[in-house]
Every structure is written in C-alpha cells, then in structure tokens.
C-alpha cells in the first residue's frame, strides 16, 4: 500500500456522528495528519474542537493560517473560510466565494491537497446532502491519490457519498465501523 502523507475527511449533514464514532478508534501514534472539513454554521468553532477532542488522545485543533501541518494531529477547518494546502506543507485560508453553497468547501481542500500529496493522499467523503467533495475526489483520483466514501447505505444522508460513487471511481467504500482500522493500517 502507498505511504499516506495526509488523510482528509470531508462531511456535511449526518457526518458529525460518524466522526465521533471514528476518532476514538484511531491510534494515538498515527504517523500522518488527519484533516477534517465539515459544513456547519459560522461561529461554533471551539465547540466542535472540544467535542471531537473529548473522543481521542490525539491533539485536535482548529487550523491557524500558515500553520505547519504536523503528523499525529487532527486539524479542523475553521468555519466560514476555505482551507487550502500549500506546497510547503502549510495551511492557508481563503475567504473567496462559497462553493456548492459551502465555506469551507470540501472540494477546495481535496483539490489543493491532491496536487501537493499526489499518490500519498487519502480522501474520505462522508454523509451529506449536497455534492460538495465530488469534484475534489475527481482531482484526487487524477493526481493518483486514493478516493474513499462512507458506504451510502450507512449514511444518515446518502446523497453526498452516492453522488461521488456515481461520478468518480471510488477505491474503497467503508462502513462506519471499518474506518478506524482502515486508517490505522495506513501507518
């Protein structure tokens, strides 16, 4: 299996529950960063970070702009900014137009990460009710990264992973219970 340099998870409606079940299962010594982009209302940043932090021994933090991306850390995209990955392995933020009615847009993070990490990138798209993330997964595939979706049958809102399945060649379809093991095995 290819080396994993970054594991990125995108989700919308119905994805928080998946994250809360997934995070406790991830090994504390995971040798790559986990980056989470989920759609939510503007202004509840620390709440989400605290909530996710309570479920894992890993450091969970909201991204600061120009921050170095460090292995073994769970990063959360701040609300109301797009999150981009730079070539020098840092984050940058962008307040440009919403994409798919969303900011942060999963597409933006997937697409910029795809160019940086190429075949060493894994992107997982969870439950959600719009098609954000689908174009992002296309880029990931184009640059040789791995495309993953939550099994639509297990998703509270199947539309988002189902759209991805329809439009992109998906490498792995994961049930909620399988995600933790899958991630740990990439180490």
């Amino acid at each position: 299996m290819k080396k994993c340099e970054a594991f990125i998870i995108g989700g919308s409606a119905g994805s928080l529950d998946v994250l809360l079940r997934l995070l406790p299962r991830i090994d504390a010594a995971i040798p790559f960063p986990i980056i989470i982009v989920i759609h939510r209302k503007h202004g509840s940043d620390s709440l989400l970070t605290d909530l996710l932090s309570s479920r894992t021994k890993l450091i969970v933090k909201e991204v600061d702009e120009k921050e170095n991306i460090v292995a073994g850390t769970v990063y959360i995209a701040p609300s109301d900014y797009h999150l981009l990955i730079e070539r020098d392995n840092t984050f940058s933020l962008d307040y440009s137009e919403k994409i798919n009615y969303s900011r942060p847009a999963i597409d933006v993070t997937f697409q910029t990460a795809a160019e940086v990490y190429k075949s060493n990138l894994y992107c997982l798209l969870l439950s959600g009710s719009n098609s954000d993330g689908v174009n992002g997964l296309k880029s990931v595939q184009l640059w040789g990264g791995k495309t993953l979706i939550q099994d639509p049958a297990s998703a509270q809102v199947a539309y988002m992973p189902a759209q991805a399945k329809l439009h992109v060649k998906i490498d792995h379809i994961l049930g909620i219970e399988d995600m933790g093991d899958f991630i740990n095995l990439l180490a």
């Binding site: 120009k66 990955i85 940058s92 962008d94």
Partner: peptide, 9 residues
C-alpha cells in the same frame, strides 16, 4: 501571495 489560493483564482 500564498500560492494555493492564487493558483485556484
């Protein structure tokens, strides 16, 4: 300028 954003634009 930060490259990722500029390149997208």
């Amino acid at each position: 300028y930060s490259r990722a954003s500029l390149k997208r634009r």
